[in-house]
């Protein structure tokens, strides 16, 4: 496909998903009503729906989708493996464990999940502890393969913690429902606090990643050759690990573990537009945001208890298989 058309096309896709995300739900609004409400005109009900409920939800979804897809691009280039995803190093598992720990143990420890900040902050802390472990390993000179295997071990460890907490809180229906939210992702009840918590930092992270596409190209074809061609691989590795893990941590903190976006979006866009990371990074940010908004829209349009993480997998899986067949 012509790469010249990609940016406008993906931008348009995101704009449509953005407006649709503001328009659809229990109360359906027309496109003009949405635009009116956005600029502060129209009736107060649609203004409230758009400004207080759907806009924060949409912005959080947009940022989480962009962050996960961008992080996926970086992980895949970094590990020279198209199957790498943002959760590979245990960051999202850490985020989930942080939130789940507060949910399961909070009542008995007297830490109520009352404030809207408690869970995201706990999640960010969990994710950052995992991130810290990863960065420490990388700084101690762990090679790419050891980093990957450490991620596998860390994921298993953190997953075991979450499973344990899930088991001991079995029977507490309310707690379990909230835990499921973190494990399967979701954008319900997102507020402006969630927006401020995650969106500006994600935007900054994405902007910092954008100029690194050229160096990523070289790195994705081998660390030693990249170094020999003039890339400061040590510094680049550190920057990439920090940015990718922080983006994943923030996305998890505001939206829970949303599977598959970080794997399938970069991969699909690479199949269509080629592997050049200078293009793949911005494309994936736009595509990831649009994809996540579309999947969230599906959970609202078919209110049969679909979780966001389920939809991303159900929609992404078959689409991905189709692309793989076509690309052969």
């Amino acid at each position: 496909m012509k790469t010249r058309a990609a940016l406008p096309l993906l931008g348009l896709l995101l704009a449509v998903a953005f407006l649709a995300s503001l328009a659809f739900g229990e109360l359906r609004l027309g496109p003009m009503q949405v635009l009116d409400a956005l600029v502060g005109r129209g009736d107060s009900l649609s203004r409230t729906v758009v400004w207080d409920f759907r806009l924060p939800r949409t912005l959080v979804g947009l940022a989480a989708g962009a962050a996960l897809a961008a992080s996926g691009v970086v992980m895949q280039a970094f590990f020279r493996n198209p199957l790498a995803d943002p959760g590979l190093l245990g960051v999202s598992s850490g985020g989930a464990l942080g939130a789940v720990a507060v949910l399961a143990l909070g009542p008995s420890l007297g830490v109520a999940a009352a404030s809207i900040w408690t869970l995201p902050v706990a999640s960010i802390l969990g994710a950052f502890v995992a991130t810290g472990a990863v960065i420490l390993l990388a700084e101690r000179g762990a090679g790419t393969e050891r980093l990957l295997l450490s991620g596998v071990a860390l994921n298993a460890l953190l997953g075991a913690g979450t499973s344990f907490l899930l088991t001991i809180s079995a029977g507490h229906f309310e707690v379990n429902a909230q835990i499921l939210f973190w494990l399967m992702g979701g954008l319900e009840n997102r507020s402006w606090e969630h927006v401020w918590m995650g969106v500006p930092a994600i935007l900054l992270g994405c902007l910092l990643l954008l100029p690194m596409g050229r160096a990523l190209n070289l790195l994705s074809l081998g660390e030693q050759s990249a170094q020999s061609l003039g890339v400061d691989v040590r510094r680049l590795r550190r920057k990439l690990i920090i940015l990718a893990t922080v983006l994943t941590a923030l996305a998890t903190a505001i939206g829970g573990i949303i599977a598959f976006v970080g794997l399938v979006v970069p991969h699909a866009l690479r199949l269509v537009f080629g592997p050049d990371h200078r293009r793949l990074l911005p494309y994936s940010m736009l595509g990831g945001a649009a994809f996540l908004l579309a999947c969230d829209l599906a959970t609202r349009l078919f209110p049969i208890g679909l979780r966001l993480g389920v939809v991303t997998a159900v929609v992404g899986g078959p689409f991905f298989l189709w692309l793989l067949r076509r690309a052969r």
Binding site: S220, L221, G222, P275
Partner: peptide, 13 residues
């Protein structure tokens, strides 16, 4: 300039 022995590419540039 260094040319190594490994010429395995994961990405189709």
């Amino acid at each position: 300039a260094w040319m190594g022995q490994e010429a395995l590419f994961e990405f189709g540039f």
